[in-house]
């Protein structure tokens, strides 16, 4: 464990807490893509099922349990509790266009052709693009509540912080994980546009609005 990874994980944790806070306080899931949230459940379940047979640490175990349970809880909030506030007509990105190619990529690129390893690869690939329905929705509506942008910023910062973590691990442990690194770079790159508007507008106290 190093500070980059710790802060990356804490940022990931924070993003979920911000999202839960947004939904609970506004009693609405307006502006949140259900498809992206459903993809995250898929990602966490596919990757973290090893918590039943592979012990890493208490930290690792608790985080996995938290990510799986909170993401499922968010789906419940969106589909059941605050269902009327979710508008599927603007959440139109075709998620199957993401899942399909990720399955194919995982079958080709994995560290071992076993079920858990292919699932692991699949989850890494899917995570890298799972934010696309959300970003697409943002693009369509052209604006977002400030709290939603904080959620996205924390989520983007998480994978961005993993990059220095991998560089650190390369030098300190001599290990490199090409699948995670390449997918992580893609994942972070997808946030570039968002971060530009976030830094130049939201953090200056303005509303998140995309140029028409």
């Amino acid at each position: 464990m190093n500070l980059f990874r710790l802060f990356g994980d804490l940022s990931h944790l924070a993003s979920i807490l911000i999202l839960l806070h947004k939904i609970q306080t506004t009693r609405s899931c307006r502006g949140i893509s259900f498809k992206t949230q459903a993809l995250y459940v898929t990602v966490f379940v596919a990757r973290y099922l090893d918590l039943f047979y592979d012990w890493v640490s208490l930290y690792n175990f608790s985080m996995k349990v938290f990510f799986i349970s909170s993401s499922i809880y968010i789906l419940y909030l969106m589909k059941v509790r605050f269902r009327p506030t979710h508008d599927p007509s603007i959440d139109t990105f075709r998620a199957e266009y993401l899942v399909g190619p990720c399955v194919v990529l995982a079958l080709i690129f994995n560290y071992k052709f076993t079920f858990p390893e292919v699932l692991w690869s699949f989850s890494i690939f899917l995570e890298s693009v799972a934010i696309l329905p959300q970003l697409f929705m943002l693009q369509r509506t052209g604006e977002a509540e400030t709290i939603t942008t904080h959620y996205l910023a924390a989520l983007g910062a998480y994978r961005a912080l993993y990059i220095p973590n991998w560089i650190y691990r390369y030098f300190s442990e001599g290990v490199v994980d090409p699948i995670a690194v390449i997918a992580g770079l893609v994942q972070t790159a997808l946030y570039v546009d968002f971060f530009y508007v976030y830094f130049t507008k939201v953090l200056q106290g303005q509303k998140f609005e995309l140029p028409a």
Partner: peptide
């Protein structure tokens, strides 16, 4: 470098 998988990461 050995291509080790970081399955200890989240």
């Amino acid at each position: 470098t050995k291509p080790v998988t970081h399955h200890d990461e989240l």
